[in-house]
Design a protein around this nucleic acid. Structure first.
Lengths: 141, 141
DNA sequence: GTCGAAATCACCCTTTCGGGCGATGGCCCC
DNA sequence: GGGGCCATCGCCCGAAAGGGTGATTTCGAC
């Protein structure tokens, strides 16, 4: 967090400096007018900008739930097939072999085979272990 | 970060330039009018707010990779005790009851009891299900 | 002092998992 | 047309996990 504060301050300092410079320039341009209202405009602009930053920050904070991109490289490297990935996802959802079989319209034996192959490819012996490793490899969220 | 500073300055320079131009134009258009300033205050405010939103969004996007804070509220609400949380963490690491027992210097029977209590509190029936739910409640990363 | 919650352990029994083995059919590629 | 890979299913058996019940100890709160 601290590392972003300094750049932020710098940016704002630059913006304010630019604004001041612009004000002087405009002062020169509109010499006849001697009103300080430009200052107000600057202040209002700064206030709106600050509010905008706050809003943008909030928006980004809640609208960015970490998109998660599946590590297809690891999947390919381990030779995990498509069907096995499907089973892996059901596994991560906490389903039993029987439930996965019903969800995919397959025999529990087939699910067992897929899971056994997954275990071999992930080099694990338990489903919880498989989940930990798969999450580590970003195969699942 | 550095790569965003230059575009930021450029954009703000553009905004300021556009604002100056708008001022001149409005000066001409509404020369005789008594209160044209409300219009540009609105415009400037909108422009600065928009720029601020943009900056805030960018800033938030590259800040804080979310270090994960355990949801102690949920833990308390469910009545999950400290020992059970320890067991839950080992569970998430993919360890068996026996391994957890050895790691904590306890009997496997005790681990079984803790896990059974966890299941009851999380309202699940399998360890993989418990992990899914615990992750959902942010009890574990 | 007693009551309750937490923590510890034990036993029994059923279900689920996992390992090992084999088998079949489809598909692609050389 | 044979070899390799994937997907599908079956059976057997042992290990792990889960459900139920009961017991003891410790410790803080009332």
């Amino acid at each position: 967090m601290t590392r972003t504060v300094l750049p932020t301050i710098l940016i704002w300092a630059l913006i304010l400096a630019a604004g001041a410079f612009a004000l002087r320039w405009m002062e020169f341009q509109y010499l006849a007018r001697a009103f300080p209202w430009r200052v107000y405009i600057g202040l209002i602009g700064a206030a709106f900008a600050a509010g905008g930053v706050w809003v943008g920050w909030r928006l980004a904070a809640r609208a960015a739930p970490a998109p998660f991109a599946r590590n297809t490289a690891a999947q390919a490297a381990l030779g995990v097939t498509g069907q096995e990935m499907k089973v892996l996802e059901h596994l991560a959802a906490g389903r039993s072999n029987k439930e996965i079989a019903q969800a995919l319209g397959l025999s529990p034996n087939t699910i067992k085979t897929h899971i056994a192959n997954l275990f071999a490819k992930l080099e694990v012996a338990r489903r919880t272990q498989a989940l930990a490793k798969a999450r580590d490899l970003h195969l699942i969220p």
